[in-house]
């Protein structure tokens, strides 16, 4: 009994933090979403699920959701492939690889605002890093953040770079946990390097793929800082991602009730997407367990 009480004391600070700064605000947001709440006049009317009903016909919200899906389709697979390749490279038993791992991880510990400012300069027309290179090759300058065809891919490309470090570290951990004996056996059987990677490393990394896939997808749907700093949802709403749209609804349009409802719809959809991803990967995981 005493042991169990000690355990409760240990988790109390974290639980209190979770309760005060996560669970209570979430519950309060759910409460707010049931009202039509004018925060400037502090007038509220209980409307039940009306905000959710209106949301179903809200073209701007679903447009933002659509753009976020497109963004996730670019950023998540790109991020996974890049992180896996870098993880494979830095897992080689070569001198100085620890330094490379640190270098790749630096963006993860940098301020999101500072990174966004940096990438504004990278994408700058004519004088930006990428355009200087393009123009050096004789190609025209591209206004990446203001051209409707380029802005979303530009943000996705940046997110691949920003997320590289954390994803790489997870893949490195996954690679390190792979059983050496299986590879030795494969070598004895005459498997080539590509066969070992494609038929062994990839399936054995299935739990890691799943984790990175789910967390990266959730991260993509929560994207806010780069949009706020770099594009403000423009041009033509192409970068109006759902996280930014919710912010605009709450703090520019001062419609906190609609924004709360939007947040819960996003939560529900993210739950569905994550569930689908889990189910998709389950077969591979089951196959892995069986083997």
């Amino acid at each position: 009994m005493r042991k169990s009480q000690t355990g409760w004391w240990f988790i109390a600070p974290a639980s209190l933090h979770l309760l005060v700064f996560a669970l209570v605000p979430v519950a309060y947001a759910a409460y707010v979403s049931l009202f039509r709440w004018d925060i400037l006049r502090d007038e509220r009317t209980f409307v039940g699920l009306d905000q959710y009903q209106r949301l179903m016909a809200d073209q701007a919200f679903w447009g933002a959701m659509g753009q976020t899906f497109k963004y996730a389709l670019m950023a998540v697979p790109g991020g996974l492939v890049a992180a896996l390749l870098v993880a494979l490279a830095v897992s080689q038993p070569l001198k100085g690889m620890a330094w490379f791992r640190t270098l790749f991880y630096i963006p993860a510990v940098s301020s999101g605002v500072a990174i966004a400012m940096l990438w504004i300069y990278v994408y700058l027309p004519e004088r930006g890093l990428i355009n200087t290179m393009l123009m050096g090759l004789g190609w025209p300058s591209i206004d990446f953040l203001n051209e409707s065809g380029w802005a979303l891919p530009a943000l996705a490309f940046m997110s691949v770079w920003v997320g590289l470090g954390p994803r790489m570290i997870i893949y490195v951990a996954g690679l390190m946990s792979l059983p050496v004996t299986v590879y030795e056996a494969a070598s004895l059987d005459g498997a080539s390097g590509w066969q070992k990677f494609w038929r062994m490393t990839m399936p054995l990394l299935a739990p890691t793929h799943l984790f990175v896939l789910v967390t990266s997808t959730i991260g993509a749907f929560q994207t806010f800082t780069p949009v706020y700093m770099m594009t403000n949802g423009r041009p033509m709403g192409t970068t109006n991602l759902v996280g930014y749209h919710i912010y605009v609804t709450a703090w520019e349009n001062f419609n906190v009730s609609a924004a709360s409802a939007q947040s819960f719809v996003l939560l529900f959809l993210l739950g569905l997407v994550s569930l689908a991803q889990f189910r998709m990967m389950r077969r591979r995981l089951e196959g892995y367990d069986a083997s």
Binding site: E126, I142, D143
Partner: peptide, 9 residues
């Protein structure tokens, strides 16, 4: 064009 003007920097 808007993009041209921006790209002139």
């Amino acid at each position: 064009r808007l993009s041209q003007a921006a790209s002139m920097g």
